[in-house]
Each structure stands twice: as C-alpha cells, then as structure tokens.
C-alpha cells in the first residue's frame, strides 16, 4: 500500500550537467511513450528522484505491514485470520519487489533500509497511526488500499520500466485486497449494533489520515514540470484525491455510514468534490516524526534489523553450493 503525498526532493539543476544531446534524446524517448530500462542513459536527477520515490514506496510497504500485522494474532475466525496473513504477506512482498526495482538504479537494499532507520528516508504518513480495533483493519483494507491503488495505477504509467513492471504486479494483488477489505467492512456495517459502532468510530478516526494520504493540495506543493515531463510524477495530488472521493465516498454512504466532514459533497455544477481541508500542519508534524506511532514503527524495524543481523552476516559467508530443486 502506498499513497501519494510523496514529497519530491528539490531539483538540483546545477549539480550535474547532463550531456545536452543525450538529454534531448532521452526526453524524446519519453515523449514517444518509450520506457527507460536500467542500462539506458538517464539524467542524474531522474535517477536520484526515482530512487527516492521507489525507496519511499518500498518502505511504505514494509512499515504498512505493521499496523495490520498486529491484528493477525487477533483476527476473529479462520477466514479473517488466513486472509489477513496472506494480505500482509503480499505487502511485504511488494516491499521486496520495489527494493529490487530501486536497486536497478544503483542503491542497495541495505542502504535503503539504513536510511529508513536513520530517518533520512520517509514512508507514507498514514502508517504512523494506530489500528485500534478490528474495524480499523477493515477500514485500512478497504479505503487505504483503495487510495493506494489509485496512486499505483497512476504511477504504473510512468517512464521507468522496472518500477512500472513491479507496480503492475502489485496492482493485481491490491485489487484483491480491496475486495477483501470491502467484504470485511460490509460485514461490520451490516452486523450488530456494536460492530457498526466500532466501524463508524474507526471511519471517524481514519478520515483525516485518508484525506492526507494523497499529499498536500496542488496549490501548496512544489510543482515540477520537469518531473511531469519525465513521467516521474504522473498526476496531481488533488486529482488523485478527487478520484478517490468520487469512487469511494458513495460506497461508504450507501452503507448508511457517515464521514466526519459536514462540507463533504459533490458539486454537481463543477463535478468536483468539496470538502474541509484537513489540518495540513498535522500532516507535516507526522512526516517530521511526531505522529502517534512514528517511534514505535521504527523501533519494530530496528528490532528486525538488529536481531536479524547475525542471520544476514551468516548468509554473506555462504559456503553452500547446492542447487535447489524447484519442484
């Protein structure tokens, strides 16, 4: 799962002077809709921004596994338990795919994980919130995965081939997660009074993080024509947010549930959704490490890093030369 809200690095035009002839050819290729492969020539900044983007996406997958992961051991009944393990496993698998995609640009998985742990590299803000009840799991599984799909389908049309290939695979799995999340949510919405209350409560709590999910409004975010031209950034935050609201708000309302924004409605004249801007100061606070779970999330990853080090070290000195039968 991964949202927009990606904050691109400031472009550093004067850092490296790309060969203007090569740059021209590169931009022509992208304009023709060609994809860029790892060994192709690419501008310095293209590589740098992509590494940051894909790395942040990969971190979001493995950190995103944590809030839902805490509910695997508590999932009610075999069906939910098995589905949740499989779903969270998929998310970790997405992380693995994406780290590999980013590695094709020259940064090792180890370095990326080090940057996650030392705070240099970010992940999607939404995972810094706790999953307090079972209903949170269904809200995450439906609405956060839905948001992630919108973002990932958009990004899969970008210009860097390994990232696009990874995203296409990821989107197939995410669309299955969405079905599972929706089914779980509908069960609670049509269940007992307590289940419904639990769900409404979770929706109320998650609404602001969901509105933050696609990132700051376009008017407040730094626009980069170059990143758009290079097909690194594929759609504006506001456009993705509109698409999300348009598809999913009606699905919540049709279940008789409410969303905690009295202004939320579709303007039939402009065909756009109107809403109260979420508190963007909170968004920046959370990005900068002050969300409810930032420290806890990194602590878990740090545990995995430290306690797994001896295993990774042992693999580095691998003396086994056996081949493994595949079947």
């Amino acid at each position: 799962m991964y949202g927009g809200g990606y904050i691109f690095d400031k472009l550093q035009d004067n850092q490296v002077n790309d060969d203007p002839e090569k740059l021209l050819l590169f931009e022509e290729r992208i304009a023709r809709g060609e994809k860029i492969e790892p060994r192709d020539w690419m501008p310095f900044d293209y590589r740098r921004q992509l590494i940051r983007l894909i790395e942040q996406h990969a971190h979001s997958e493995i950190i995103g596994a944590l809030p839902e992961g805490t509910w695997i051991t508590r999932a009610p009944g075999f069906k939910r338990k098995l589905a949740l393990i499989a779903k969270v496993q998929d998310e970790i698998g997405h992380g693995q795919l994406l780290y590999s995609a980013a590695e094709t640009l020259g940064k090792s998985r180890e370095n990326m994980i080090n940057d996650l742990l030392n705070g240099k590299s970010k992940y999607s803000n939404v995972f810094n919130y706790p999953a307090e009840t079972w209903a949170d799991v269904t809200v995450i599984g439906f609405l956060i995965d839905a948001g992630a799909i919108i973002n990932q389908i958009t990004n899969s049309k970008g210009s860097y081939a390994p990232y696009c290939r990874a995203l296409e695979r990821i989107c197939y799995e995410e669309s299955f997660h969405l079905k599972q999340g929706h089914e779980g949510l509908v069960f609670l919405a049509t269940g007992t009074f307590v289940q419904r209350e639990m769900l409404q409560d979770a929706l109320n709590r998650w609404w602001e993080p969901i509105m933050h999910f696609f990132g700051p409004p376009d008017k407040a975010s730094v626009h980069s024509e170059k990143l758009m031209k290079w097909k690194v950034k594929m759609a504006s935050n506001d456009d993705m947010r509109q698409e999300f609201l348009n598809t999913y708000v009606p699905k919540i309302w049709e279940l008789g549930l409410t969303l905690p924004d009295p202004k939320l409605k579709k303007n039939t004249e402009t065909n756009k959704w109107e809403y109260t801007e979420p508190n963007w100061e909170t968004f920046w606070q959370v990005i900068n490490g002050n969300g409810p779970c930032n420290k806890e999330r990194l602590k878990v990853r740090m545990w995995a890093e430290e306690h797994g080090r001896w295993v990774r070290d042992a693999l580095k000195t691998n003396q086994l030369t056996q081949s493994v039968p595949l079947a």
Partner: peptide, 13 residues
Amino acid sequence: SEWTGLGPILEED
C-alpha cells in the same frame, strides 16, 4: 504468524 514484519530478511518474513 508473529514473525510478520520482524523477519531477519524480507524473504524470511
């Protein structure tokens, strides 16, 4: 299942 998110490498997770 308690190893979710904690494996020494992602592949083991």
